[in-house]
């Protein structure tokens, strides 16, 4: 196990190294002056330019420049945003929690819906329930998320007026930022309108979470269903049935434990798709997260921000991927043959 962990850590290091090289080269690949792209400063006069060239070692070969770049990244000096001239790292810490919050709830919802529905569909795959669940899953799997979001907004926000169509919290409420996670912040704050604000935040959260959860839920249903059907054919299930266990016992003791193992791994694999969808969801629901921030950066040709966004998001996805794989290996002795 330790060897496995060490190998994984080594791999993580290699990938992060590759990622940083890629991010560094973007400074040259993006249009415009590399010095501006690295520092994020819009106007650089000649004295400052000389100073920055020395500091960034731009007069030296690429390898030295890369080392200087790496040093800056590790020290937390990620340059400024073209648009706001604020430090990028600070801006990212402001928008990242919103994305994480939304993604976490969507993932949670997809678990709570996807796993039971998948099991239900696997019990009688050719029955009415099984077929309709599979059908719904296929439809949800094929929906273009932005269009689906628009439909829901048109129905629930515009026609019925039940739910707000965008944002994280109504403008009536002001909650001090402590963690950046809206629900936590509201619970931690001691404002007089705490309950009202919580209710409002939940109402704002409903539609984006529903939209974002659609895809992972359907993937989960399909995956759990296939895994269950696969496990149901195994010999140990037949043995368990032959021993006289009833359906529920077999399902719980032998079926679920084996069928749900790969699901852990699936989270890691789906996470990058989830981030992509979260970016789209944020744009549609004006959710102030990192996805909307990145898309805005494209419109503003804010290259340092795109570079920083790449590093943060990829590191996040890779780390989560790694963690789920390690968890999977921890739980599943069969996967430990490294």
């Amino acid at each position: 196990m330790i060897v496995f962990l060490l190998r994984r850590l080594f791999l993580l290091g290699t990938v992060l190294f590759g990622l940083s090289v890629f991010a560094f080269s973007l400074g040259y690949l993006f249009p415009g002056d590399p010095l501006q792209n690295f520092s994020g400063m819009r106007y650089i006069d000649s004295t400052l330019r000389e100073q920055l060239i020395l500091q960034y070692r731009l007069d030296q070969p690429y390898s030295a420049q890369y080392l200087a770049f790496l040093g800056r990244i590790l020290q937390g000096d990620w340059g400024l945003s073209f648009a706001s001239q604020q430090p990028l790292l600070k801006e990212i810490w402001q928008v990242l929690p919103a994305t994480l919050e939304l993604t976490a709830y969507a993932l949670l919802l997809s678990f709570m819906l996807g796993v039971p529905l998948g099991i239900l569909a696997a019990i009688k795959p050719e029955g009415t329930i099984g077929k309709s669940i599979s059908g719904i899953a296929l439809v949800g799997y094929s929906l273009p998320i932005f269009w689906w979001a628009l439909l829901l907004i048109m129905f629930f926000s515009v026609t019925l007026g039940w739910l707000p169509s965008g944002g994280r919290l109504g403008v009536l409420y002001e909650v001090p930022t402590i963690t950046g996670f809206m629900l936590l912040d509201i619970l931690l704050s001691d404002v007089s309108y705490q309950h009202a604000a919580l209710w409002d935040a939940l109402r704002h959260l409903t539609l984006p979470t529903l939209v974002l959860a659609t895809y992972p839920t359907t993937v989960m249903i399909r995956f759990v269903r296939d895994a269950m059907l696969d496990v149901w054919e195994q010999n140990y299930i037949k043995t368990a049935k032959a021993k006289g266990l009833n359906r529920v016992q077999v399902l719980y003791r032998h079926g679920l434990r084996n069928a749900l193992l790969p699901v852990i791994r699936q989270i890691g694999l789906q996470f990058s798709a989830l981030i992509t969808l979260a970016m789209l969801t944020e744009v549609i629901f004006s959710w102030p997260g990192i996805g909307r921030w990145l898309i805005d950066s494209i419109y503003q040709r804010n290259f340092p921000a795109i570079q920083a966004g790449l590093m943060i998001i990829s590191t996040l996805v890779i780390t989560i991927n790694m963690l789920t794989e390690i968890l999977h290996t921890l739980f599943n002795p069969l996967a430990r043959k490294y």
Partner: peptide, 9 residues
């Protein structure tokens, strides 16, 4: 791991 960079990004 390269698989994990979101396609939209």
């Amino acid at each position: 791991l390269i698989l994990t960079i979101p396609s939209l990004l």
